[in-house]
Write a protein that binds this DNA or RNA. Structure first.
Length: 539
RNA sequence: GCCCCCAUAGCUUAAUGGAUAAAGCACCUGCCUUCUAAGCAGAUGAUCCAGGUUCGAUUCCUGGUGGGGGCACCA
């Protein structure tokens, strides 16, 4: 939180010279690599017009104000103010950084977030593409919690409906070695599950086959997610909302509020009218709630499930969906609004489709037998670390082409190893230090220590991790963290090649550098941890 | 036809409206007697097109072009 503290401090100083409305646009950012400064602000540029002053003049004034408070700053370019921090600042920062709760932001304390993701139908093994959503959701939840929000992960299990019936019938056919029903589930996995059925299943009713199949497939999903280091706080079964009679209650409430009408023997939700007043992003047509055969649509059930999320106390509800479901978003927002909720508290992260490149062929993710690539296959062949880092590297908006042959064959080229290698190398530095009699945790006085550019660069990078996490929260995507870790790793490897940490002839330097190594190691371990990637001591 | 997403280096991708657009792969040149060469140092190489807003646009807006996805009384 040192960046936010510094921003707060500078803002307080500036508040004596600028009106509050102009101060709102003040923030610090990390200067680009070729600028030798520790923090910079475009404040002078952004308020020049409002203040009716030349930006460079304003920037000069800023520097004078800061200099009076002993903050070193200079003007550069068109009006950037670049701040240089004292060496002592970095040592103080390093002492705090490794402490627990460094990233906890009190402003996030009231954010009670529910993330729903993967939620694959329990009718077959998890597809590779589920790994993408699982990575995004889990890493995002980890980052949110690290930053002081309360985020919970949920997996919605569609354990009722036609597909479940069909699954049971398909399993039964496999068990009795009969022809599969039309539109039945073709996958070989049902043969394996049939083998687990007891002999008396011969006399089971169809529903029991369904329940058995779902139970077995859920076990697979849970195992896959566990091995992928994704822990759901709850596996919410759709049958639960029916036991609680929630869809009927939702339906009644919509009717009572005049939001539902009857047409052609079905009940409709006026979603287009409901969203029309919102202007943009309205639903383009009304949606059926109860079909003319008397059954609920998926939408009505799902709306009641989403309202139940709010009833459980969550004030921010986030779904992660594939791009093929984006059309679903406006009607859900309209539904939440009609139910008296706040549509702005509901966010859908749409991730674009993952395409699989195998050989020269680009496959759409598909459940057809020949094209189906299970997540399990990739986990076993490439490993969780490489998979998770690879999937979290991209923004959800990227139309990713996943070259599966490359991923398997050349997994060593995955940048995850470059980052993990930092952790392993620092670990052996500590071992070496210990052998030479240095105690890395020893408190020492570094007030006279002059940081060289590489040392300063490492501590500066660690300092800015805080802002990277802010960007992840803002964009609801962990991918900024991957880029950050690769950059930090690059700085470290370069430092490592140029400077030696353990030097018995220079105790002050050794202890100072050990503190830096501790800081870098903590940044790497924390960052990798947030991505669900391990930080090995040896490689 | 309408809606959403995308277009950056040979390939896969980064870049809160900011300063000299950043990495990896591929390719080329050097570097292991020193805390792990899964590494380092260096060379080559890019913002789809046309307007607009702005002190400043890869980023925002409009219009093209090209690609992906979606437009069910399915779930």
């Amino acid at each position: 939180m040192e960046i936010k503290k510094l921003e707060k401090k500078i803002k307080a100083i500036l508040s004596k010279h600028f009106p509050p409305e102009n101060l709102e646009s003040f923030f610090l950012s990390q200067p680009p690599a070729h600028i030798s400064a520790d923090a910079s602000t475009n404040f002078a540029l952004s308020i020049a017009k409002k203040e009716r002053k030349n930006p460079v003049e304003l920037a000069k004034k800023l520097c004078e104000i800061l200099a009076a408070e002993k903050i070193g700053a200079e003007v550069m370019g068109a009006g950037f103010v670049n701040i240089r921090l004292e060496d002592s600042f970095f040592f103080e920062f390093a002492e705090k950084f490794s402490g627990a709760g460094y990233f906890k932001n009190p402003e996030n304390a009231r954010k009670n977030i529910l993330l729903e993701f993967v939620s694959a139908n329990p009718t077959g093994p998890l597809h590779l593409a589920s790994g993408s959503a699982a990575t995004m959701g889990d890493s995002l939840a980890r980052i949110m919690n690290e930053c002081g929000c309360s985020a919970r992960r949920e997996y919605y299990v569609n354990d009722v409906g036609n597909q479940v019936k069909m699954l049971g019938l398909s399993l039964k056919a496999r068990f009795l070695k009969k022809e599969l029903p039309e539109n039945g589930y073709q996958g070989e996995y049902l043969v394996g599950i049939a083998g687990k059925l007891p002999p008396e299943a011969e006399n089971w009713p169809d529903e029991k086959f369904s329940a058995f199949a779902i139970g077995e497939i859920l076990k697979l999903h849970k195992k896959d997610m566990e091995d992928f280091r994704v822990t759901f706080d709850r596996w919410f079964e759709e049958s639960e909302i029916h036991k609680k009679n929630l869809p009927a209650q939702t339906f009644e409430k919509l009717k009572a509020g005049g939001m539902a009408y009857q047409k052609d023997g079905a009940w409709w939700f006026g979603s287009s009218a409901q969203t029309a007043e919102n202007g943009e992003n309205g639903d383009d047509k009304d949606r059926v709630l109860v079909k003319s055969d008397g059954n609920n649509t998926y939408f009505l059930n799902d709306l009641s499930y989403h309202m139940h999320k709010y009833e459980r106390g969550f004030n921010r509800v986030i779904d992660i969906l594939g791009a093929d479901h984006h059309g679903y978003v406006p009607r859900m927002k309209a539904g939440i609004k009609a139910m008296g909720g706040d549509p702005d508290s509901f966010t859908v992260i749409i991730h674009q489709m993952v395409y699989i490149k195998r050989g020269e062929e680009i496959l759409k993710m598909s459940k057809r037998a020949g094209d189906f690539i299970p997540l399990r296959e990739l986990l076993d062949e490439v490993g969780t670390d490489a998979c998770r880092f690879f999937f979290s590297m991209r923004s959800p908006n990227t139309h990713l082409i996943f070259d599966i042959d490359l991923a398997k064959k050349k997994s060593n080229d995955n940048p995850v190893f470059y980052v993990q290698y930092v952790h392993a190398r620092i670990n052996s530095i500590f071992e070496n230090a210990k052998e030479k009699g240095f105690d890395a945790d020893e408190k020492a006085d570094f007030s006279a220590y002059k940081l060289n550019p590489e040392e300063r660069g490492l501590l500066l990078k660690a300092l800015w991790l805080e802002r990277v996490l802010d960007h992840c929260l803002k964009d609801l995507s962990p991918h900024h963290l991957n880029g950050y870790l690769m950059e930090l790793a690059g700085l470290f490897h370069s430092f490592y090649d140029k400077h030696k940490v353990v030097n018995p002839e220079n105790e002050e330097q050794t202890l100072a550098r050990l503190l830096m190594m501790k800081t870098v190691k903590h940044a790497i371990k924390t960052g990798l941890g947030l991505l669900g990637v391990s930080a090995p001591d040896k490689m």
